[in-house]
Design a protein around this nucleic acid. Structure first.
Lengths: 141, 141
DNA sequence: ATTGATGCAAATAATTTGCATGTAC
DNA sequence: GTACATGCAAATTATTTGCATCAAT
C-alpha cells in the first residue's frame, strides 16, 4: 500500500490517522526484515522522543487486525516479529546463527492445501511456513 | 522412543534419569495434541504434588536441546507448545476457533528445500509449517 | 465538542535464575 | 561422596491495561 493509500485506508476503517500510526507504517514499509515491537520503538525514539512502547504494541495490534501487518514468532528468541503484509504471498528463510532473513518468493503449498482440505474437511484459511538453517557466511564455521 | 529406550538415551547423554524426567516424557508421549509447559505441570501435580513449574521448563529445554521434543509457538495465544519429536516428519492443522490440532502426515517441502538451497546457498536444516483454518464443526458458525 | 488515541506507570503472564537442599550415579 | 537435579521464591522479559490528558475528526 502506498503512503497516501494507507491514510485513506485508516480513515475508511474508522481509525484515526495519527502521527504515530503513520510513522510506524513507514518504518514497517522500509524494513526488509522481520522486526520486533521493541526495535520499532527504538527507531521511533530516534525520530520523535515522545512515543511510548505501549502505543507501538497497540498500533501493531490494529494493523495486524486489519491485515496490513503480519505477526509471527521468531524461532529461538521468544519474541513476536512483524512485517508489512506484502500481498504477494511469500515466506522466510532464517539463519539460526545471525538471524538474517531472506525472502522466498514462490510458495509450493496451494495444491497441498486443497488436498488437505479434501482429506480433513477443514476450511483452510492460511498457513505459516518458515525455513531455517545457516546462511552462506555462518555455515562455514 | 520406547519408555525403556528413553532411559538409556538419557544415561548415554550424561543426563540423569530422574522421576520428573520420566514423568514428563510419559506425559508428552501420551499427549496427541500440542501441550504447554503449564498444562504439563498441571498433569504432573495430579500424579505427584511436589513438582515445580521451573523444573518442567528446565526439563523441556533439555529435551528440546537433545531433539527428543519439539517446541513451537501456538498462533493467537503467545504461548510455547511442546510435543514429542515423532521422527516421521509431520505437520499440524490447527482450528483457529477451538484450537483443535490435526496431524498431517505427508510433507510437500523436501524438493522445495533443495531448490531453495540451490538458489540461496543456505544450508537448510529444517522448517516450520502449520496450516490453520476452521474445523468441520467450527466452520458452520 | 466528541470520541477515540496516547503516554506513563503499574499490572500481568510466561519464562528464567539463584541458591540451598536433595538424589542419582 | 560428588556432581548434577530439584523446589521454592524472586527476577526478568515481553506484553497489556488503567487512567488522565491530548488530538483528529
Amino acid at each position: 500500500m502506498e503512503c497516501t493509500e494507507i491514510k485513506k485506508f485508516l480513515n475508511t476503517n474508522g481509525i484515526k490517522n495519527t502521527k504515530q500510526r503513520n510513522l510506524i507504517y513507514d518504518i514497517l514499509s522500509s524494513t526488509k526484515n522481520l522486526i520486533t515491537a521493541e526495535d520499532i520503538y527504538l527507531k521511533l525514539i530516534n525520530i520523535d522522543t515522545s512515543v511510548s512502547l505501549s502505543t507501538v504494541y497497540r498500533i501493531l495490534d490494529i494493523f495486524v487486525d486489519k491485515g496490513i501487518v503480519l505477526k509471527s514468532n521468531m524461532i529461538g528468541t521468544d519474541k513476536n516479529v512483524f512485517e508489512i503484509n506484502h500481498l504477494e504471498h511469500e515466506h522466510h528463510l532464517i539463519c539460526l546463527k545471525c538471524k538474517k532473513v531472506v525472502h522466498i518468493e514462490n510458495c509450493p503449498l496451494t495444491e497441498f492445501e486443497h488436498n488437505v482440505e479434501k482429506d480433513t474437511n477443514f476450511s483452510i484459511t492460511g498457513h505459516n511456513l518458515e525455513l531455517y538453517g545457516y546462511c552462506p557466511e555462518c555455515k562455514e564455521k
